[in-house]
Design a protein around this nucleic acid. Structure first.
Lengths: 358, 358
DNA sequence: ACAGCCGTAGCAAGCGCTTTCTATACGAGA
DNA sequence: TCTCGTATAGAAAGCGCTTGCTACGGCTGT
C-alpha cells in the first residue's frame, strides 16, 4: 500500500540506490537521471520512511529541546528561537543544511521526566539535544544526567546547554550558554540599595535549582557589599522560597510582609513571580512604588506593560535560544572553553523608586 | 560499540526474540526468563534502537503537537497540557499505556512550515498529531492540509484538532475540539453594549485565520443585534487587523483612536494584543477604564494582573489541551460527530465600565 | 591504438528489531 | 501409558533504506 523506494526506482527505471542518492544528494547523479527520479517521486507521492532511513544511516534528523515549563514564555521564547535555527524550511537557507525535526520536550521541572526524555531521544538517536533553563542540583540526578549525556555524546549526539550552567564534570563534549544570573541579581539589588532601600524582601524560586541559587547569591552579594543583611539575620528572614509562578509570588510576598512590615522593596525570582508580588502588595492596600518597590527578573514581554512598568533584569532569551539552535546544528562554533556567559542587563522602570523617608 | 538486542540475548542466554518480547511485554515469558533478561539489559545498559524498532513494527511512539507560536502562552499552555497526557512517565499511569514521545513543533504561523512539519511527522510514522490554534484559510493550503492529513490518517496516524475548527471536508478521521470563539466574541461585545458603549474599536488578528474571523463575526453579531455599526460603516472603520502581538495592539489602537477619537471602548483579538492596546490608551493620556474600556480574549494568566484587571473571555486552554492529548492517545473516545465545541466564559473585571456620559 | 580514468549506476550486504511460524517440554485427560 | 493441549522459546524472514564496492562506457594521454 505504501510507496517505497523500490517503487520509485521501478518507475524511474533505475536502482533503489540511485533513488536514495538523488534524495540525499551526496553522490554524483546525472542530471537526466535525477530528473527522472524526481518525477517518479512526485508521481507516486513518495514519502521517505524515516525509521528505515535512520536505521540504515545510523543517525536521525531529530533534535530535542528540553524545557522545564513550556507554558512559561521564558522557555517558550528560547525554544521557539532555537527551533527557528533548526526546523523545517524558513530557516532562511531553503532546505539546505538539512531538514531537521526540532521537537520540544516539556519536563515540567521533574528530574525523572528529564531523564526519560533523554532516553527517548537517545532511542531515536537524536542528532542533538538542547537543554534549557536551570538544572536541579540533586547529586544523584546530576550524576545520572552526566552519565546519560556522556553516553549520548559518545553516540554522536551534540549536546548544548542554554541558560543552564554546564555539569560539574562538564567534559568538552558540550557547548554551554550560561546566563549571568548571579551578576544580574547583584546589580538589581545594588540598584535598590542605591535608591536607599535597606530592608529588601526576596521571593526566591525552588531551592534546588541552579537558577534560584545563582540569583539569590547575587542578591546577597549586593546586600553584603552594602553591609546589610548578613549580621542581623535579615537574609534568611526576608527570603521565602516557592515555585516559579504567580501564586508563589503572591503568597511569599504576603509572608514577607507579615514577617517584617517595614520592608520597602521586594525582589522576585522572576517576572511572573513579580506579578504575584505586585498583586499581594496591592491587596495589602500598599502602592507600588510609593510604599513598596517591586522588581523582577527576565524581562518577559508583559513586564513592560505592568503598571507601573516592572524594573527587571533583561535576559536575551531569543538570541540565546537562537544561538543554542545554531550550536546544535553545528552551524556555529562552540565558544572557547565550551562555555559562554551571557550578560544580563538591568532595566530600570517605574516599579522601583527611593523608599519614603520615615 | 553500541549494545544491541543480540548482545542482551547472548548475555541472558536466550534468543533475541525473547528479549524483544520481554521488553514489549505482549507475549508470555516465564518469570525467571524475564528476570534474567531484565538483568542483562541492566548490566549492559542497553537502550532500544528506536528507528529499528519503528521500522520493524511499522509504527513509532512519536506524537506531534503543532502550534503557531510557542512563545505565546496561549499555545504553551495547550501544548504543555497535551504533553502531560502523552509523554514520558508522570502521566499518572506509571509507564502503562506506552511511553510516547510528545514533541511540539512550532510553525510560526506559516502554512509552509505547517505542511513541512506534517511531512516530517509523516516520515517518522507518528502515532498521532495534534493541531492547535486557528488555521489559515487559504483554499490551496486547506486542500493540501486535508490531503496530507487524510494520507496520514490512512497510514494509521490519529489526528486531533484542538482549538481549531475541523477542515471543510472533515472526514470522520479526525477528532476536533473547537473553541466557541464566535459566541465568546459576541458575549464580550454584548457586555460592552450593555454597559452603554456605542462606539467600540476592534483590534483584530490576521484576517486569514479562522480564529480572527470567528471572533470578529461574534463581535459584529453583537453590534448588529444592538442595531449598531452595520449601517454607518463603523464596522469597517473601527476594525484594524494585525498580528497577534503586543505591538500590533499598540499601533492598531492608536490608529483607531485617530480614526475616531470618540470611541469609548476597544476590544482586542486576544489578551496580548489587549496589553498593547492598554499601553496605547495610556500613552494618549487616557485612563482605563474611565476614559476608555479595554477588553481581551483568552484570559491568559497575566490578564488578571493587569491594572486594572482585564475583562476578557476565558478559554479552558489547559483542559482542552489535556483532552486533546487524551484523544491523541486513544485514552478517550472522540466526541459524537467527531467534533466538540468548547464553551467560552465571559470574565468581567476592572478594565470595562460604563462610558462617561457626554 | 591501447591503458587508465573519470563519471555513473547497480549489487548486495547489512542496520537492529518484530513477529509469524515452528519446536519442545510439560502435565493432564482418557 | 499414550495422546494432546498449553506454555514457552527459537529460527528466520523481513521492515525500507544506505553505502562500500564493483562494473561499465567513453575520454584522455602517450
Amino acid at each position: 500500500m505504501t510507496v517505497t523506494l523500490a517503487d520509485v526506482a521501478a518507475r524511474a527505471r533505475v536502482s533503489p540506490a540511485t533513488v536514495s542518492r538523488v534524495l540525499n544528494g551526496n553522490y554524483p547523479v546525472a542530471a537526466s537521471t535525477r530528473e527522472r527520479v524526481l518525477r517518479a517521486v512526485d508521481d507516486l507521492d513518495y514519502v521517505l520512511n524515516g525509521p528505515a532511513s535512520s536505521l540504515a544511516a545510523a543517525t536521525s534528523d531529530l533534535v530535542g529541546i528540553l524545557v522545564n515549563d513550556i507554558a512559561d514564555p521564558f522557555f517558550g521564547i528560547m525554544a521557539g528561537a532555537a527551533q527557528t535555527q533548526i526546523g523545517g524550511p524558513g530557516d532562511g537557507s531553503g532546505r539546505a543544511g538539512g531538514e531537521k525535526l526540532a521537537v520540544i520536550c516539556n519536563t515540567g521541572g521533574s528530574p525523572e521526566r528529564e531523564l526519560t526524555y533523554l532516553t527517548l531521544l537517545q532511542r531515536q538517536r537524536a542528532a542533538a539535544v538542547v537543554l534549557t533553563g536551570g538544572a536541579v542540583e540533586y547529586p544523584d540526578h546530576q550524576a545520572a544526567m552526566a552519565a546519560k549525556l556522556a553516553k549520548m555524546a559518545d553516540a554522536g549526539t551534540r549536546i548544548v546547554f542554554c541558560g543552564r550552567p554546564p555539569l560539574p564534570e562538564g567534559d568538552a563534549l558540550v557547548a554551554a550558554l550560561a546566563f549571568d544570573n548571579r551578576g544580574g541579581g547583584r546589580r538589581l539589588t545594588e540598584h535598590l540599595i542605591s535608591l536607599g532601600h535597606r530592608r529588601i524582601g526576596y521571593v526566591a524560586g525552588p531551592p534546588e535549582r541552579t537558577t534560584t541559587r545563582h540569583r539569590l547569591e547575587g542578591h546577597r552579594e549586593a546586600l553584603r557589599g552594602a553591609g546589610l543583611g548578613a549580621e542581623d539575620g535579615d537574609e534568611e528572614r526576608l527570603t521565602v522560597h516557592g515555585p516559579y509562578d504567580r501564586r508563589s509570588g503572591y503568597e511569599a510576598t504576603l509572608e514577607i510582609l507579615r514577617r517584617d512590615p517595614t520592608v520597602t522593596a521586594v525582589v522576585a525570582a522572576n517576572d511572573t513571580v513579580a506579578l504575584g508580588a505586585c498583586a499581594a502588595v496591592r491587596d495589602q492596600g500598599l502602592r507600588i512604588p510609593q510604599d513598596i518597590s517591586v522588581a523582577g527578573f527576565d524581562d518577559l514581554p508583559f513586564s513592560v506593560d505592568a503598571v507601573p512598568a516592572l524594573t527587571t533584569v533583561r535576559l536575551p532569551l531569543f538570541e540565546a535560544g537562537a544561538r543554542a539552535g545554531r550550536l546544535a546544528m553545528g552551524k556555529e562554533n562552540p565558544p572557547p572553553g565550551g562555555i559562554a556567559t551571557i550578560a544580563a542587563e538591568l532595566m530600570i522602570r517605574g516599579s522601583t523608586t527611593p523608599p519614603r523617608v520615615g
